[in-house]
């Protein structure tokens, strides 16, 4: 089973991202959306949670949500792929199941 985990909360406000990563198994994907996109930024107190897991888990972040919040793509952690809405749909279709971390 290959699961997609979506996270829509800021990692500096809630532990949804941290918990999603802890519960994601090798080969799973994590997609950061809405306030979850703050988790994709370099240089935050929580950046290491993502960068430490980047070999085992594929990370994606919603581009439109980055733009809304004024986050330049140059400031996201290396290895995270930026997707748009159709990329979101493709990710959902590609995985056997989707789990939302709210």
């Amino acid at each position: 089973m290959s699961q997609l985990h979506t996270v829509n909360k800021s990692p500096l406000d809630r532990n949804a991202l941290e918990s999603a990563i802890q519960h994601a198994t090798k080969g799973n994907a994590v997609l950061m959306i809405e306030d979850g996109v703050y988790g994709a930024m370099q240089g935050t107190q929580k950046s290491a949670i993502v960068s430490d897991a980047i070999g085992d888990i594929s990370f994606y972040v919603m581009g439109p949500d980055l733009k809304a919040r004024g986050i330049d793509e140059a400031r996201i952690i290396d290895g995270i792929k930026v997707v748009d809405y159709s990329g979101f749909v493709e990710l959902v279709a590609k995985h056997d199941a989707t789990q939302s971390w709210l």
């Binding site: 800021s10 703050y38 581009g63 439109p64 949500d65 733009k67 809304a68 919040r69 004024g70 986050i71 330049d72 748009d84």
Partner: peptide, 12 residues
């Protein structure tokens, strides 16, 4: 984060 510059919400 509310005061971040360069916010652009067209796509959302």
């Amino acid at each position: 984060y509310q005061l971040a510059k360069g916010q652009s919400t067209e796509e959302v």
